[in-house]
Design a binder for these strands. Structure first.
Length: 570
RNA sequence: CGGGGUAUAGCGCAGUCUGGUAGCGCGUCUGCUUUGGGAGCAGAAUGUCGGAGGUUCGAAUCCUUCUACCCCGACCA
């Protein structure tokens, strides 16, 4: 491609509404432009990257034995009513009516459509297992789209759905997809980890997320320092702690005027947060005999909402009680709450429960209790559960090493769906005995457009993007200097350009009549991995100049060896 | 959905408090010079000051209302 014929729309200034680096650089390098909140156009340069990611995904999915299909983005309400998700999915599902007032949605995912399609096509166990995928635009009406294409409303996703006669077959394909994802992210050139994950609203039994590691990631991942254990922090188990080394002491009530946060109370009383507990009051579900439920974690820990939602009668999603509700049932306000004497169900985190003496709110505004002992002071039955987030230094749940925590961007997610959708939608085949059985299903997603942003989050410097070669919009850029007044420069650059094209290299010939600084700045901002400079000065000495995007210095190479040198680099 | 903020040229912003001819930088266009790190000089174009209503002799500026967008939280593959 010749830059003089190509839309290179770089910006010197950073658009003010771009928060994260990938969003800023995608705008500045001219990859995308915003149309509305969470809706982006892909410009030529950006689309080249997107297509390269798609190509790798497609090649590896095909290699795994999956078959590509393409399903409609618009889906009839009836299918979603059949699976029960028309009601459950909530406002994130964009619902529309056609001219006949029939209800549809813009697909945020395609379990219903594929299950409907395949319950009609798959009749026999002999057709199984089968895995179908598509690369398609999805729409989720995110409450708060942000970070550019990282969390857009409309985005491109590769989604795959597998069908099986039994769970053993599902397990096999699940492992194949696990391996395939590993190949895909490795080929793209990202630093990533597969981690155990919560299966969330899609449902199902087992699930792994593939995270691109980056400081700007929205998810926290817990790793073991000495084993392969890795899990989303939502899932990572906090093991029961070792027994408290301090003995029980006498209970006392202390005045703590206007000290409501753990930090304030600790500073006021001169104690450590790990000798306090905090009591969170949440709303209970309709079936619950008590309208409120207390959740207790140690003062230096934070509540894990995913874990808490699994406690009996706690609502999902978790809903904190209002101050008015708390005052009505307990007689004190948040900041002075504690488990002693509570008349509502109490769930206590393992670490909090292990304390022999601790400080907590007295359920009387402006007072705390010190020296509290569970057995002596909270004789009512309390349930000891795991409801906190793990922290760095906790023992790894697999018993090997300690936990360390990093941030990740969720780029892929694989689920064992089991028979959730096939049961709801009656997707059956005949087995070897001629008996009709419900199929087992798996589903496997990759956020293709998100991968583009994630790659930038992981690969940039103060000059701009640094693409992994496999997904760079162009692999090589040839920049001519002063070409307008040098036939030799034009000819040498053109010759090299043609040779690289003939070798199938994605090469950008920067033949624009721009000053050198402009070309260098643009090529660096756009993140092209390899740059060759053809100049009159160099040609006089018989050299070209090469610089890799991550290199700090240029190197001169003999002009005659330019092609071979470059091919060796690729 | 709760809280906060913003809306003025393609982009980044000033002007709004205290009403009186709409500005700056970058970018864009033309010409000349220039060409190894985002050039210089000269000239030029570009705005329903987010929309609608109101107050006023006069509104970017004050009032009412609507919309869009952004941030924090909640929520979420």
């Amino acid at each position: 491609m010749r830059a003089s014929l190509y839309l290179i729309s770089t910006l010197k200034e950073t658009p003010s509404d771009a928060e994260v680096i990938s969003h800023q650089l995608m705008l500045r390098a001219g990859l995308i432009r915003k149309l509305a909140a969470g809706l982006y156009s892909w410009m030529p340069l950006g689309l080249r990257v997107l297509r390269k990611v798609e190509t790798i995904v497609r090649e590896e999915m095909n290699r795994s034995g999956a078959q590509e299909v393409l399903m409609p983005a618009v889906q009839p309400a009836e299918l979603w009513q059949e699976s029960g998700r028309w009601e459950k999915y909530g406002a994130e599902l964009l619902r529309v009516k056609d001219r006949h007032e029939r209800e549809f949605c813009i697909g945020p995912t395609h379990e219903e459509v594929i299950t409907d399609l395949m319950r009609n096509e798959l009749r026999s166990y002999k057709s199984l297992p089968a895995n179908f995928y598509q690369i398609q635009t999805k729409f989720r009406d995110e409450r708060r789209p942000r970070f550019g294409v990282m969390r857009a409303r409309e985005f491109i996703m590769k989604d795959a759905y597998s069908f099986h006669i039994d769970t053993a077959s599902l397990d096999e394909t699940y492992q194949v997809m696990h391996d395939t994802y590993h190949r895909i992210f490795t080929r793209i050139g990202l630093d990533f980890r597969a981690v155990q994950a919560d299966s969330g609203s899609i449902g199902g039994s087992s699930s792994h997320e593939f995270h691109v590691l980056a400081d700007s990631g929205e998810d926290l991942i817990a790793f073991s320092t000495s084993s392969a254990y890795a899990a989303n922090i939502e899932m990572a188990e906090a093991l029961p702690p070792v027994a408290d080394t301090l003995p029980a002491v006498e209970l006392s009530k202390v005045a703590t005027p206007n000290q409501t946060s753990i930090d304030e109370v600790c500073a006021f009383l001169g104690i450590e947060a790990n000798r306090t507990v905090k009591t969170l009051i949440v709303k209970a579900g309709k079936e619950s005999p008590s309208p409120l439920i207390a959740l207790v974690v140690r003062g230096d820990h934070t509540l894990n909402e995913i874990k808490a939602e699994k406690c009996l009668h706690v609502t999902s999603p978790l809903a904190m009680a209002t101050d008015a509700e708390i005052h009505q049932h307990i007689g004190a306000l948040p900041g002075s709450l504690g488990p002693v004497g509570l008349q509502i169900p109490v769930y206590v985190d393992r670490s909090a429960a292990a304390l022999n003496q601790f400080t907590c709110g007295a359920n009387e505004n402006g007072f705390h209790l010190s020296g509290v002992n569970w057995a002596r002071d909270c004789p009512r039955q309390v349930a000891v559960v795991d409801i906190r987030n793990v922290v760095e230094g906790d023992p790894s749940p697999d018993g090997q090493g300690q936990i360390q925590i990093k941030r990740g961007i969720e780029a892929g997610h694989i689920f064992k769906l089991g028979n959730k959708y096939s049961t709801a939608m009656n997707a059956r085949v005949l087995d070897a005995q001629g008996k009709s059985v419900i199929m087992e299903m798996g589903c496997y997603g990759i956020g293709v457009s998100r991968v583009v942003a994630a790659a930038i989050e992981q690969n940039y410097d103060d000059k701009g993007i640094i693409w992994p070669t496999a997904i760079a919009p162009f692999t090589v850029a040839i920049a001519t200097l002063n070409a307008h007044k040098s036939d030799a420069v034009r000819e040498a650059a053109e010759h090299l350009y043609q040779q690289l094209l003939a070798k199938g290299v994605d090469v950008l010939l920067d033949d624009r009549n721009e000053r050198p600084g402009v070309k260098f700045a643009d090529l660096e901002l756009m993140g092209i991995p390899h740059r060759l400079v053809v100049s009159e000065r160099g040609l006089t000495e018989g050299t070209l100049e090469y610089k890799g995007r991550r290199d700090t210095d240029n190197q001169n190479i003999p002009a005659a060896q330019g092609l071979a040198f470059l091919l060796d680099k690729l």
